[in-house]
Design a protein around this nucleic acid. Structure first.
Lengths: 204, 204
DNA sequence: CGGTCAATCGTCTGAATGGATGATTTTGCC
DNA sequence: GGCAAAATCATCCATTCAGACGATTGACCG
């Protein structure tokens, strides 16, 4: 039986590469592509593929958000995350938002087809690098509140406690409290490592 | 006349995509690809393309370094930087290391061919996004010394002045001096913004 | 209603940072 | 050899940070 495959990626060259790889492949039915989240959802209104290859970084929406939306509206559609580089927190997010697998863009043709077959059959597929990095780092992104995220942004922009307090119309001790809960939640011993984690975790 | 094109990129899908786009294009002679810097240099020993499409992130070497090497050994070869996302400091590095242009991987087929024609003719090509970001941000990466880079790494890892001093067998005032010259060179008012710039600038 | 948690405000304190300024010793380079 | 830059060390001082406490308010939820 033939798997219907759709791709959502704003990188034209990637789309073209995958199309070229898959279009003459028996067992794969190429449905087309979307360059952003909106067109992807538009497409899904009329047709549902078996598998969507989905980029992490889309122009109008985060891949993780789109992933969640799609899985809510069309639970039977399997999603395979696609990304250029190995980014643990994002992989984690994708999987927890319903993706069935994750693939790096330097994967071979065989790996790509394997992955599609696996997730179309209801299984899971993680490329070696992703699996490796999920094992090694237990660095789960902590759950922070809306206010804390605000403070985190300002800290990353180099604002001090007094400046944050002034900007948000709160007292200095309050700003300090938020800063300290951020440090505690991230397990960081100072702003330096906090900022590094935040930037690398894509929170900024 | 036909332009000889070679590509160096470790992302199989990209290579495949570009090959698919270019192989039937009149005026383009597809020479093949290399997945890393070493094979690229190996290939150049026997044949020289007119244009090399070169990824920024290679497994064995930085694209910028390879760029420099190639331009030193084969000045007549034109290099076109290729990358997924828009990263000002890297673009700057590529250009100052001899690249003739820069292209994002979401470029269209027309843009790709235009770019190849331009640089093959000895001209320059910058994709709109890259040109834009080079104009907007004057945030040139400051020149820092080897020692300062060392300190910068430790700061980003969350080490304090006393810890850095102990680790590098230098006195606390010295560690502090290095930290302060980093802040001065980056124009950062505290570690938070320093770390952010360093991480975003790809120095970590 | 009672429990939990986010968000706010507070005090106290030692440690670390950031700014100013100057000096000495290597080291690299012409 | 001699210059310039890098790397080292130093003192002084105000500000800021980070840890350890505690406390109140309001919102949401079972």
């Amino acid at each position: 039986m033939s798997h219907k495959v759709f791709i959502t990626d704003d990188h034209f060259m990637i789309v073209e590469g995958i199309r070229s790889l898959l279009q003459n492949e028996p067992g794969i039915h190429w449905m087309g592509h979307a360059m952003d989240a909106a067109s992807c959802l538009e497409f899904l209104k009329t047709q549902q593929p078996d598998v969507i290859l989905m980029d992490i970084n889309l122009p109008d929406q985060k891949g993780t958000a789109l992933c969640k939306t799609v899985k809510t509206l069309y639970p039977q559609v399997q999603i395979l995350g696609l990304s250029t580089y190995n980014q643990q927190p994002v992989i984690r997010d994708m999987l927890s938002n319903g993706a069935s697998g994750y693939l790096l863009k330097n994967a071979s043709k065989e790996e790509l087809i394997d992955a599609i077959d696996m997730v179309a059959a209801g299984g899971e597929y993680l490329c070696m690098e992703a699996a490796e990095s999920l094992k090694n780092k237990v660095a789960a992104k902590p759950i922070i509140t809306k206010r804390e995220r605000e403070i985190l942004h300002l800290i990353c922009d180099g604002l001090t406690n007094p400046e944050i307090a002034e900007k948000l119309f709160i007292s200095l001790p309050t700003a300090n409290t938020h800063r300290k809960s951020l440090l505690a939640k991230f397990g960081a011993k100072n702003v330096a490592s906090l900022v590094k984690m935040a930037v690398e975790g894509g929170l900024v």
